[in-house]
């Protein structure tokens, strides 16, 4: 029966951010693609150590902001000068000025939606199931431990080779994670 359980990946535990970062550099240089580092707080410099590109969340925020800006002006133009034109103080029905405070707030609101929902989308969250969250040892990832996980699905993964690589990086504990 034990053979039926698929291995998700190899989990290596580190006790300091520096160790985890050096390990990440080794894994990056070995050319792995399906792997990750789990830390209780963002470690400064880890993105470079993992070879990650700049996050794309900014684009979602920009898209949200542009939508908010356009939608705000369109809404006010539609409501106050097209669908129900109303003259106030003998002023023109539409001007870029008076809607500005509302448009400004809508720009910020939708940019913020873009930032947070873009972040959740890029991270594929919320996630109802993750093999690592079943692992008892992994609870340290939100406490004070640092983990490098290399998935078995990685084309460069091999039981012996990957184990040796992580051992040479100086991990304190290693185990296979079930899928």
């Amino acid at each position: 029966m034990i053979n039926d359980i698929q291995a998700y990946g190899l989990l290596a535990e580190f006790h300091t951010p520096a160790d985890a970062m050096h390990a990440a550099e080794k894994v990056r240089d070995a050319g792995f693609t399906r792997w990750d580092v789990h830390t209780p707080f963002p470690v400064h410099g880890m993105d470079e150590a993992m070879g990650l590109k700049d996050s794309k969340v900014g684009w979602f925020s920009f898209l949200g902001g542009s939508t908010g800006f356009t939608l705000g002006y369109l809404m006010i133009w539609f409501m106050n000068s097209y669908n129900y034109p109303i003259v106030v103080g003998g002023k023109p029905l539409m001007s870029p000025m008076f809607p500005f405070p509302v448009v400004y707030e809508m720009t910020i609101l939708l940019s913020a939606f873009g930032a947070i929902f873009g972040m959740l989308f890029m991270n594929r969250l919320p996630k109802l199931y993750h093999p690592l969250l079943k692992n008892c040892r992994f609870k340290g990832a939100t406490h004070d431990k640092f983990y490098v996980i290399i998935e078995t699905a990685d084309p460069r993964y091999s039981d012996a080779g990957t184990r040796e690589l992580l051992e040479s990086a100086g991990c304190k504990h290693m185990e296979t994670v079930e899928d």
Partner: peptide, 9 residues
């Protein structure tokens, strides 16, 4: 999960 790919975003 504290993934660094997640932390980055």
């Amino acid at each position: 999960t504290g993934s660094n790919r997640h932390w980055s975003n």
